[in-house]
Structures are given as C-alpha cells and as structure tokens.
C-alpha cells in the first residue's frame, strides 16, 4: 500500500514541475493536467482488476459470513453520502482557488479533508465491526477480496487527505494568492476520481446482492 502512496505522490507532485506558470505546449493544455488525466485513466484498470476479483469471489464465503450478513447498509449509505458531499466541497475549493481567493480555498480544502477523514474513520469502524463478526482478512475469498478492494480505496482516500493537508501548508508559505490554483485543481481531480470509484463500489459491492 505504501507503493501506491509513493506513486501517487510522485504523480501529483509532478505538477510542481511548472516553476513558471506560463507554458506554451503544443496542445495548449497544461502538462500537469494531462499527466493527471493519463494517470486516472490508468487507475481505471487498477480498480477494474480489484472489482473484478471481488465479483468473482464474492460468493465464496467458506465457513465465514456472507456479504448480506455483515453489510450495514444504513451506515455505509451515510459514509457514502459524506464522501459524495466532499466532492462538492472540493469543487468549491477549486472554484475559490481559481478566483485567487486563498482564504476560502483553505476553508473548503480543510472541510474536504475533514469529510474524507470521516469517511476513512467510518471505514475503520466498519472493518472493526466486520472483524468482530468473524470476518478476518483470511477468513474466506470473499473477505480477502473485499478487504483488498475497499482497503485500496481507503488508501487512496488517505493519500488524498494527506495531499489536501499538505496543500494548505504549502499555500500558507506561498506569497502570491492563487498561485497554487493548478495544484488544488490537480488534487481535486484525484479526489473526485476516488469519489467516483466509491460510487461504483457502493453500488456493485454493497447494494447488489451477491
């Protein structure tokens, strides 16, 4: 999981390679944004593989509990809702950043990070509850593939939170307001992507009966 962290950090930090705002690229598009979208395209194959593994194994519960026996739909619905709303606060942060409004950017970024942390906290709670109901990582193919898939997603959210907190710190150091707008936008893209992955996970894993 640490690997994911390193990889994401490098790609997102890559955006910092524009020391000097104004770029004249062949397509007129920012290198950083193009790089980020390429990376997100690649991430589709990563999560696709994890989701497929879960799909293949969701019914193979062995002696352990079945999905329907452990899933707590009201609880997960609430945390899904929290993550969805963090996308709204993220987009508001990006919007403020483009207006050069560092104060509001900071505010919305912080709220986004808090919502993200709530989601991850919920996931930790959920994992603990499942574990107490007898569903360990190695209990069954279902449990292993479930923990790997949602765990990977959780790591992504956590990486996102770290980036959000870091950008708050970096913005405090920067002298010109709005100079980190593109970085905020970049983190925003990453954040929304993590959200859309959860949209799929919530539906396919939690709502569709195995």
């Amino acid at each position: 999981m640490w690997f994911t962290l390193a990889e994401h950090a490098v790609i997102t930090a890559g955006e910092h390679d524009t020391g000097h705002g104004d770029h004249h690229t062949s397509t007129g598009l920012s290198n950083n944004k193009l790089g980020m979208w390429l990376f997100l395209g690649s991430e589709c194959l990563l999560f696709g593989g994890l989701i497929s593994t879960y799909m293949l194994y969701r019914g193979r519960v062995g002696e352990g509990p079945r999905p329907s026996q452990v899933f707590d739909i009201p609880f997960t619905s609430v945390s899904s809702f929290v993550l969805l709303m963090s996308s709204l606060t993220m987009v508001l942060a990006v919007s403020a950043a483009h207006k050069g409004d560092d104060r509001n950017t900071n505010l919305w970024v912080t709220i986004t990070a808090l919502l993200g942390a709530t989601f991850v906290g919920g996931q930790v709670y959920e994992f603990t509850a499942f574990y107490n109901e007898g569903m360990g990582f190695t209990t069954s193919l279902f449990s292993s593939s479930f923990y790997v898939l949602t765990g990977f997603h959780g790591v992504h959210v956590t990486v996102g939170i770290i980036m959000l907190m870091s950008i708050v710190g970096i913005m405090k150091r920067s002298k010109t307001p709005g100079s980190k707008a593109e970085t905020v936008e970049m983190i925003g893209l990453y954040w929304h992507f993590v959200d859309v992955v959860w949209i799929i996970i919530f539906t396919l894993i939690y709502l569709v009966p195995a």
Partner: peptide
C-alpha cells in the same frame, strides 16, 4: 461527477479521450 465536478464537459476533449479510453 466526471463531467461537472471534474470539468470534462468543459475541458479539452483530449482529457475525455484518455480517461474514457482507460475506463
């Protein structure tokens, strides 16, 4: 989410291409 929050609807089509190609 992808079209509005991630601006794909308003941005250059190249972004849409690379992302949906992966998807």
């Amino acid at each position: 989410v992808v079209s509005y929050f991630m601006h794909l609807k308003f941005d250059n089509k190249l972004f849409t291409w690379v992302f949906y190609a992966g998807l």
